[in-house]
Design a protein around this nucleic acid. Structure first.
Lengths: 151, 151
DNA sequence: CGGGTTGGTTTCGATTCGCGACCAACTAGG
DNA sequence: CCTAGTTGGTCGCGAATCGAAACCAACCCG
């Protein structure tokens, strides 16, 4: 084990905030890249190690944390010796919107008009959009029209 | 200066990926919490320091990076001595969808049915949703119907 | 039996973090 | 004028974390 709590923070502002809660799980330099690879279809320890260039002890630690957090699950693909691959749980797959949001931002500000990968609707092959929407007005809501209410 | 490149990575998988590009800028244990606070209206060094409990040298370093990346800008609010606050640029405000995505995930998996803060449409006060949409089908697309194409 | 593969764990030097002290440029009070 | 307080930092140093490489366990293959 690398550490018992690499991402633990104690600041007052980190409780009662869903962003902080999420970052406790995935707010680490490698975790989102690992998850990106798993989303893409890279499921095995050695593949992840090779693709990411992450140190093996860190990869082991991060995968263990993600399994413990219920984001990934170990799925056996070979008995004796037991070999498992890492698959997204429902909770893990539910991070797709977060990854897409980060990807879209990178596309807009760093891809110079040429996004390296494009996500499309499997039914009709149309490039997808991510939007903050008002279900009542059925429109997309820009940042300036978002208000925050507590409790 | 704390370091010239706290978030720099060199793995092959980190180039030509908008997620990796984004994480180079905001993929650090403190940066997204700083930005969350700035979104909420906390703009000054000492307020951020107090609210987050971050070390002052790290806060200084992260703010400097965000300014350099064009995510925040220094806006003077007092002359002699020059005092600046940190405001979101357009590029910075464009991170709202990413923060909302992370918040929504935390709401769904850690808030136990009671999200600590709810975002509403300022026009009609309806709670907002974040969705991956197909602009052609005009429907929301679940993770299973997302396909990825390169180049 | 020797070598290869997979999925790790251990070790250890290098990097980064975070606390506390210090500092610069003011303002306010006496 | 002197002292204290505020703001926004920087500096130094011990502690925690990272990353590369070595090692290991449990197989399989020839």
């Amino acid at each position: 084990m690398v550490s018992a709590s690499a991402t633990a923070r104690t600041g007052a502002a980190t409780v009662d905030c869903s962003i902080a809660a999420t970052l406790e799980v995935i707010g680490d330099r490698w975790t989102l890249l690992i998850l990106r690879d798993v989303f893409r279809g890279t499921h095995r320890f050695s593949q992840l190690h090779e693709d990411l260039g992450i140190a093996r002890n860190l990869l082991s630690d991060r995968l263990g944390r993600l399994v413990e957090a219920g984001v990934l699950e170990r799925v056996p693909y070979h008995e004796r010796p037991l070999r498992c691959e890492y698959r997204l749980t429902i909770k893990g797959a539910d991070l797709s919107a977060s990854l897409i949001a980060l990807m879209k931002w990178g596309d807009r500000w760093y891809a110079d008009g040429r996004p390296p990968t494009v996500l499309i609707h499997s039914d009709c092959r149309t490039p997808l959009e991510l939007s903050v929407r008002c279900p009542s007005c059925q429109t997309s809501v820009p940042p300036g029209n978002i208000r925050s209410t507590n409790q």
